[in-house]
Amino acid sequence: MHVKSDQRTRVIFTLNGRERSGHAEPRMQLSDFLRHEMGATGTHIGCEHGVCGACTVLVDGRASRACLMLAVQVHGRRLETVESLAEDGGLNDLQQAFHNHHALQCGFCTAGILMSCSEFLARVPAPTETQVRDMLSGHLCRCTGYTGIVNAVLEVAATRRQFQEGDTEQENNNV
């Protein structure tokens, strides 16, 4: 499809479980589109060149830099942003762990970090500290020195494993 540079096209996609649509010029960055067209201001913009990671969102489940994507690229796709994390009105386990471990100060980089961590924990249920730090190296946080973030992620991984083992035991007992 050929689109003129100043022509706005309709972008229909799933944002945090709901179908949303908006109009975007071909050059509009996904980060700007989410924030200013969709009102999803939880996703922050820190560098617009893909280094700081503040704008990280999940596109079809993969952590992606919203500043390095165009809005038109998400047409027909599924997006999750930080606004998707809270469950039943309360913080989810990862958010709660960030709170408990003082893993945020100004909170500006936090949204992106939470999204990367969410994807990572789904992929790597039993990470080592080195793996966690390696994953976090895609993000810049200038406030915390990262300690609280690392501890929060490790704790969530351990707790989720415990639960899962508990579930498995339960299932085994039921059998």
């Binding site: 606004e83 936090t110 949204a111």
Partner: peptide, 18 residues
């Protein structure tokens, strides 16, 4: 623990550009 965290962790902070 901080009273600031809840909103920030939900992406409900209110920074200038928000």
């Amino acid at each position: 623990t901080r009273v600031e965290d809840d909103a920030l962790l939900r992406g409900q902070g209110r920074y200038g550009d928000d």
